[in-house]
């Protein structure tokens, strides 16, 4: 009976005879897992699959797994050519990759961020786990090609994993250009972005009409408008979701900082408000990756720790919303 259950849930063999054991669990371990599952459901968490598992999500179109915590570069990596600041940002990126980081998001709109990322990536030897995501941002349809080529030069990459149309600017023309680039191997995935809760109607229309791999939008524990329509639509259409402004550019953390974390945040292994907020975001089943931005190594460690440990289930998410709303 136990063996059958184990095979059903986990796939190992429950036999206590070590000579018959297939890689898997013994009875004691299985019973403790069952107990844990019952307790987890009671307290509202979804346990990590194994003690050292780090959360990833699949890109629906391909099944490729990417870490649920990536990194944004708006403001934080726009530091020009100052040697001290460049060294600091390289340290931040090092911490990101050492914690298993993947997606880095940028844009030509972000000043020198792309150039700074290129510098840092060069210093770090171009880590293999990088998932490069940038944007095309120009009114002029004909200028998209040149801008994307310039971005490849700044990042010092032969191609991008993801190219997005920034804030839907001239999206019809730029999507066509990006598709051509995908056909020639310069891009692997295609997406569009919005932020600050703007242009959601237009985004929904584009998601309905265009074959997209990714959308990027704003979503956090207080900006939850996208739960109504855009996130379910993304699931329906098999579109991966990147979440920007997880902390409202730090304003949310600043507002919450005077208040204590709830005692039950410990069940989620959340020690800071940043972790609490990120766990809320990435626990939504439609979310593929959140991209908090930071210029600090300690904050990077904090953010990347969210990739481990339990995630809240639906009941716990409700509890998190209610707690924050009451503050």
């Amino acid at each position: 009976m136990y063996n059958h259950l184990v095979k059903l849930f986990i796939g190992g063999d429950m036999s206590e005879d070590s000579s018959e054991k297939t890689p898997g669990l013994n009875r004691r371990h299985f019973l403790s897992l069952c107990a844990a599952a019952v307790v987890s459901k009671a307290v509202g968490i979804v346990p990590a699959k194994a003690a050292d598992a780090r959360h990833t999500r699949p890109i629906p179109q391909s099944g490729e797994q990417i870490p649920v915590i990536g990194m944004g570069s708006y403001v934080t990596f726009n530091v020009g050519q100052d040697a001290r600041l460049l060294t600091g940002r390289t340290a931040v990126l090092r911490a990101f990759f050492e914690a298993g980081g993947g997606m880095i998001d940028s844009s030509p709109m972000y000043g020198s961020s792309e150039a700074v990322l290129g510098h840092c990536l060069r210093q770090l030897g171009h880590p293999a786990t990088l998932f490069s995501a940038t944007k095309v941002w120009t009114w002029l349809s004909g200028a998209g090609d040149g801008q994307m080529k310039e971005s490849r030069g700044l990042w010092e990459l032969p191609r991008f994993d993801l190219m997005q149309v920034h804030n839907l600017l001239s999206w019809e023309d730029h999507l066509a250009t990006i598709r051509r680039d995908r056909d020639t191997g310069l891009v692997r995935y295609i997406g569009v972005t919005t932020s600050h809760g703007r242009r959601h109607e237009e985004l929904a229309a584009v998601m309905q009409s265009e074959p997209l791999d990714f959308v990027q939008l704003t979503y956090n524990i207080v900006d939850r408008e996208v739960e109504e329509r855009l996130l379910p639509l993304a699931v329906d259409k098999g579109i991966a979701v990147i979440v920007n402004r997880p902390f409202q550019r730090g304003d949310l953390i600043e507002r919450l900082a005077p208040h204590p974390l709830p005692a039950w945040a410990e069940d989620l292994e959340c020690r800071t408000w940043a972790q609490f907020l990120l766990k809320f975001i990435v626990s939504h089943p439609a979310v593929t990756c959140a991209i908090p931005a930071t210029s600090r190594v300690d904050h990077m460690h904090e953010n990347m720790a969210v990739r481990q440990g339990p995630l809240p289930n639906a009941a716990m998410r409700r509890k998190m919303i209610d707690y924050v709303r009451a503050l």
Partner: peptide, 15 residues
């Protein structure tokens, strides 16, 4: 609201 912060701005002025 601005794509840079004060630290980056004054690093630029210094340079």
């Amino acid at each position: 609201m601005l794509p840079y912060d004060a630290e980056a701005l004054f690093a630029l002025y210094t340079s």
